[in-house]
Design a protein around this nucleic acid. Structure first.
Lengths: 223, 223
DNA sequence: AGGGGTCTGTGACTAGGTCACACTGAGATC
DNA sequence: GATCTCAGTGTGACCTAGTCACAGACCCCT
């Protein structure tokens, strides 16, 4: 009698083609697929790390939250990516230092810590999967922080608007969303947007912004 | 004719006792010891990473620097430690995102990237050495950043003074030193120190500070 | 039509960063 | 010993950002 593999395609979905049969089996037995509705808090500060997570569809917003309620976006975890903090929290045996929240409905693979430790020890391919992007991600976070600590809001806001806008220059975001991405306060964003609208650089609407003068905004972004 | 090992004790100095003979040899051949006088810039933003560094004596200050000249201390690398940014920069193949500068005379071991990659692949013990403290260090940096972005200077200054002072409450630091640790401006520190001195909490002297009322300072630190 | 929640606008105030410049003290040089 | 130099410090004026309080606008829902 043959035992059907629970997840016959897990290894290939992770892009792993050279696992030993024992490792492939361990992976197939350990992996669970989870579905998280939009707005779910995946982890929060002080929590221990339950396992290693790889996002398959949707995106998770990872942010730092202050006691005052202000928060700042550290990065997003997009499909095919794993989360720096989850990895470092797993290996450092430290609790999470930030909050993760689904921005959309999310499906993800979860591997128990023991499986991850074992595979990292024995499978070079898996090791690369886990640690890939580590350096880039740390660089991104440091850049974000540098921006928040040393630079003025206006150019940072301009860059965010340019990055988020679609081809027609439209983006959906409330002032609170923007403030939380930038680590600023809603009122501050309101004033800057107000001034930019007065100058004809953009148009505002409840929950939506339209960029009218991309060139002018790009000049502000370059400051 | 026997070839003398260049650094017969490198492995044991790194606390590695279970290396294969081939790995031990690779390590001994690759490792170089460097001596850096106080004030040397070890790395700076944009540089590629020349190899992996482990500090043996002295300490290296790792800081983020803004174009305005303001800077903030990320962490110090003390004896027996390696540098998070060096490791992540090596594995992420990204340039450095910060500046490292020796605070004292420093002796350190340097391993070429190829040696590190090889040993990380083949030696679990070495792998643990390289990645140990990764999680803790990331946590520390995030905490520092959170403090700088969301919290007021006064309690942060109070915590720094308490942490740096010796048993008699004395510490050697200029206002510029303190500002650079906190990611603030010298003038801001001057004003806060001035007020604390007026209140009798501390005494100032060119390059030196003496804490007079530890309890009061601790109350401010707790805010 | 009314009501509650979300989103936005704004004034008043405080904290912190920037700029400019003056002052002080300690070691170096004559 | 006088004075020169320079790192370190003190301070006012001004600007940006964050906080607090509150009002008004919009949206969906019944």
């Amino acid at each position: 009698m043959s035992i059907p593999a629970r997840h016959p395609d897990i290894a290939s979905r992770l892009g792993l083609s050279h696992l030993s049969p024992a490792s492939a089996d361990l992976l197939a037995r350990g992996a669970r697929e989870i579905v998280l509705p939009r707005g779910t808090t995946v982890f929060s500060p002080g929590q221990a790390c339950p396992g290693w997570i790889l996002v398959e569809t949707g995106s998770v917003r990872v942010m730092m939250t202050a006691d005052t309620g202000r928060e700042i976006l550290l990065y997003r975890v997009e499909p095919g990516e794993s989360c720096l903090l989850t990895t470092s929290c797993l290996f450092g045996e430290e609790p999470y230092a930030a909050t993760g929240q689904t921005e959309t409905d999310v499906t993800a693979l979860v591997l128990p810590a023991s499986t991850v430790f074992h595979l990292v020890e024995s499978e070079p391919e898996f090791r690369r999967l886990v640690f890939s992007g580590f350096g880039q991600r740390i660089g991104t976070i440091l850049k974000t922080m540098e921006d928040a600590i040393f630079h003025r809001i206006e150019p940072r806001l301009a860059r965010l608007l340019l990055a988020r806008a679609d081809a027609e220059g439209k983006l959906d975001a409330t002032q609170a969303d923007i403030a939380s991405d930038l680590g600023s306060a809603r009122e501050v964003i309101a004033r800057h947007l107000g001034r930019l609208a007065d100058e004809g650089i953009l148009a505002k609407d409840r929950g939506h912004i339209t960029i009218l003068d991309r060139a002018a905004l790009a000049r502000l972004a370059a400051e």
